[in-house]
């Protein structure tokens, strides 16, 4: 009898000890920065709020430095003085973006700002109109990458002839990568970061074996999304589409992703491109570049890089994917067909 009591007691102690094991806490919040909403949800056994605050600090730091509209930002100083030296020194982020842009054959153009601004100003005006050809042509001259001179040995950048760097969405991608680094150095177990539509899932999936990321439907439907992705590990998902900032004139949609060769919103038959990669900056740059390239060139381009997977949606709602994601995408809206 004594032996039984000891046995039961031991089992009881075993259970109570495991019950005392630390529980994972979660902390989440939303801030408005970089002209968009950023929501972060962090899971950690040890003060997730601290990790969250570190991330917020980093995002604000980057938002301040690369705010193209703010007078004090580094980026603005670079654009007005035309030289990194005068703006305050070398910037490795911009250099990385320039290098990435080159690999896309400048279908992602970091200096597209003068052209894209023309369209943006129309969009927010009272009665948006299609800009004059001459205006677009003039702006286009400024966006040539020849006006951006990068000196490899000194790492300095010189801007000429009215060139202005915007980095576009690339700042969000870079910020996401920096958040990833912060999470890695912390003891966060899992996290879901939504940086203005750039999604980063980090660590152990919270709900089941995989993360479930939905892709926004390019044309409004009842669900809000048209497909979901099942991802097993840390990953960034970035989508570019013609549905976020646009205006319509005479039934024609003019969206915000400008084709650097024409100066007009790209018209290559795609309405949405999603890039999945561990490298968020790349995903960001590629999603814009590939959207401009169109389905054929875009598919060939991403297939060349085994760090990324891609999902393309054409105007007739046909969905094309790279092989690595084919088994992980599930179409929820029957109007969209997986090819």
């Amino acid at each position: 009898m004594k032996r039984i009591i000891t046995l039961v007691a031991l089992i009881g102690i075993m259970f109570s000890v495991t019950g005392c094991a630390k529980a994972t806490e979660v902390y989440s919040g939303t801030i408005f920065t970089m002209d968009t909403y950023v929501t972060m949800k962090i899971y950690s056994k040890d003060k997730p709020e601290e990790i969250y605050n570190k991330c917020v600090e980093k995002i604000n730091e980057l938002a301040e430095r690369y705010d193209v509209f703010s007078e004090d930002s580094y980026l603005n100083k670079l654009n007005t003085t035309g030289s990194t030296e005068k703006a305050g020194g070398i910037d490795s982020v911009i250099i990385n973006v320039l290098k990435l842009a080159k690999t896309t054959d400048y279908n992602f153009n970091p200096a597209i700002f003068p052209a894209s601004q023309i369209w943006e100003q129309e969009r927010v005006s009272e009665e948006p109109k299609v800009p004059e050809k001459a205006v677009i042509a003039a702006a286009l001259k400024k966006t040539s990458m020849n006006n951006v001179q990068y000196n490899e040995s000194t790492s300095e950048i010189i801007l000429k002839d009215g060139a202005k760097i915007d980095l576009g969405g690339a700042v969000k991608g870079y910020a996401t990568d920096e958040i990833n680094k912060i999470l890695e150095q912390s003891n966060a177990e899992s996290a879901v970061i939504d940086l203005g539509g750039n999604v980063l899932v980090y660590g152990k999936p919270v709900q089941s074996n995989n993360w479930t990321i939905a892709i926004r439907a390019p044309r409004d439907n009842s669900l809000g999304y048209f497909a979901t992705l099942s991802l097993a590990q840390t990953c960034s998902v970035v989508t570019s589409g013609d549905y976020e900032r646009y205006f319509e004139v005479d039934g024609v949609r003019y969206h915000h992703i400008i084709d650097p060769t024409t100066g007009y919103p790209s018209d290559t038959g795609l309405i949405s491109v999603t890039i999945i990669s561990k490298n968020s900056l790349k995903a960001d740059v590629y999603s814009t570049a590939v959207f401009v390239m169109g389905l054929e060139k875009g598919m060939a381009f991403v297939k060349n890089d085994n760090e990324v997977e891609a999902v393309f949606v054409t105007t007739d709602k046909k969905v094309y994917t790279t092989d690595g994601i084919k088994d992980k995408i599930f179409i929820e809206d029957k109007d969209y067909t997986l090819q």
Partner: peptide
């Protein structure tokens, strides 16, 4: 099920 819990929406 149809409406699995979504962790995030990419847009």
């Amino acid at each position: 099920g149809y409406n699995q819990k979504i962790d995030g929406v990419s847009r």
